[in-house]
Design a protein around this nucleic acid. Structure first.
Lengths: 333, 333
DNA sequence: TTGTAGGCGTTATCAT
DNA sequence: ATGATAACGCCTACAA
């Protein structure tokens, strides 16, 4: 691979001049530029990005840490982030934290050791304190789907509380009064917030929360299956079911099919996230849209603005969810 | 951030010695090592991987190019690749080619300019010649799901032909004789191969291919919808439908629901890929399992073996598909 | 507008 | 076993 030195020799100019035409960060006479460009073309020269990084202390790489690499949710997140950075000539280094504290910490260290210019973090297990300390160390990062007061200016979040509220209100407006709720693991912030939103909606309609109608699931399909089985077993009366994410809604619906419970006629089900398989489910799932792609893009823009200092559109820190009505919910008969 | 130089000063040894304990690639007296390690700990030293790369001409990064970052298929691929490399202390740089030739080329150049030690490519649009030329340039890469004769030793593939054969044979064995086929875009190698497998199965049962019962879809849900509409419109008789991937199968099934066609009673449907939403579909989709995760892992191992020269298990170059029977296929009545 | 020269933090080749 | 010292390929004041 040709180096900048060979290019300068062939073009008959100095190292510095070649560097200038590469980065176009200083005036170069048109004729000189042409000569240099010709030389680069002839040698098939491509700058060595590693050397560039070392000299400029910028790696032009951004570390992304998400819980999982598979799953419909993270897929669109990654996709949008990559597209945004790609357009800016940056590249992304991706790691998975698997919602596990030590793995998340390791991954962050791993990414840092890779000299990323910035990190985009979707972490669930590490503590707020850890993150605050990290930011104290001068590590540039944005937090996705997590709000830490001390780090407010670097949090891009969904209003989960409002989403939970919307889901339940949707059912209430359809006339349902006996509404069961399958939450995610309560140690997860978003699960907590969505649940609180649910309670707020009930309160607004002067309905007491019946603890028997709340089940803590695992955000997986099995959670939905278990929840439905659990509620049915206790002979509880409920005409609608709120699931804190679409996976669990899918599980619940599958179970319902097996039990010959007609959806939505006998039971209305609403999910949360609007992942792309939501409409593969039969009947098509009514859910709360989580604009995760937009959030990812915004996180990327945050980095471009704050780390690469490029003039940029404004940063939107909180995104609002909305109801996507499909076929799995129905007026209470 | 502390440098190796500061560590050497604090430990009272030379630069070279510190480097030796970092890489443990040369003998260091136990006492010296302890001193150095203490110094590193005290300073919170972490090697600068960029400088390491420049000096050693190894970036410890592997470029991954896939068509899409979202979608169930690529998610598990990426996930397994990342896990394998992570365990080896390497990291992955990910880019998307969107099945578009110029984008794929650009992405490859992009990854190369990032000094990746190797590339794992899932490309569909670039030509065989381009890939052969690339390998001529001394670029180390593995090809996933694509077979190029001249590059045979760096291809990790699924036996798509056999998969197509299995899908159709499954239906034939259930007694179906009028089998419609929705292919993927025929310019894609795998679409072509799967279709050939389908024909082979028909031939084995002495059935002529009826061109009217073949529809070229787009590997998306819409393809399945269009195909079903197309076949129905022509009043063709068919009791079973082979879809060249699960997305199209999902589309076809959704349409069937809308048209009150009972599946599998009136129409058996089989997909291909066994993506993870295959069982979200109702009825649960019978399909051909594509062990994409295993293939990704094997590609990673190929790199670890051939590029990082680590003793390694054998490389399996071709993976075999198998039928996953669920609820969408049924004996012909 | 262009050139010179000193770093950036490591690795690796010599000596010792 | 350890220590100098020259690369590695590029950026960036500072000079000219």
């Amino acid at each position: 691979m040709a180096t900048i030195y060979e290019v300068s020799k062939l073009a008959g100019v100095s190292l510095a001049t070649v560097s200038r035409v590469i980065n176009s960060n200083a005036p170069v006479r048109e004729a000189t530029r042409k000569k240099v460009e010709a030389a680069m073309a002839e040698l098939g020269y491509r700058p060595n990005s590693v050397a560039q990084s070392l000299a400029s202390s910028r790696s032009n790489s951004i570390g992304i840490l998400v819980s999982e690499l598979n799953g419909p949710f993270y897929g669109v997140l990654l996709s949008r982030i990559e597209a945004e950075f790609r357009a800016a000539g940056k590249h992304v280094i991706i790691a998975a934290g698997h919602s596990n504290e030590s793995l998340e910490r390791e991954s962050i260290e791993f990414l840092r050791s890779r000299n990323c210019d910035a990190l985009i973090l979707h972490v669930e297990a590490v503590s707020d304190d850890y993150l605050i300390e990290l930011s104290g160390k001068g590590c540039a990062f944005v937090l996705i789907n997590r709000y830490v007061e001390e780090l407010a200016d670097r949090c891009i979040t969904l209003n989960n509380h409002y989403g939970g509220y919307l889901a339940t209100r949707h059912l209430l407006e359809l006339g349902h009064r006996d509404i069961a709720y399958v939450s995610g693991p309560m140690w997860k912030h978003d699960a907590q917030e969505r649940y609180n939103g649910h309670r707020e909606a009930l309160a607004e309609f002067h309905i007491n929360v019946d603890p028997a109608l709340v089940f803590e699931g695992d955000f997986q399909e099995t959670g939905g299956e278990q929840a439905l089985a659990h509620f049915l077993q206790q002979n509880l009366k409920f005409t609608a079911l709120v699931c804190a994410n679409d996976e669990m809604a899918s599980g619940a619906i599958t179970s319902a099919h097996d039990l010959k419970i007609k959806i939505p006629e006998q039971l209305s089900v609403i999910g949360f996230d609007n992942v792309n398989f939501a409409h593969y489910i039969y009947p098509k799932l009514t859910t709360i849209d989580y604009p995760i792609g937009d959030i990812g893009q915004m996180a990327a823009r945050w980095v471009i603005k704050n780390v690469y200092q490029q003039p940029n559109t404004a940063i939107q820190e909180v995104f609002e969810p909305r109801v996507v009505q499909r076929d799995s919910t129905h007026a209470c008969s």
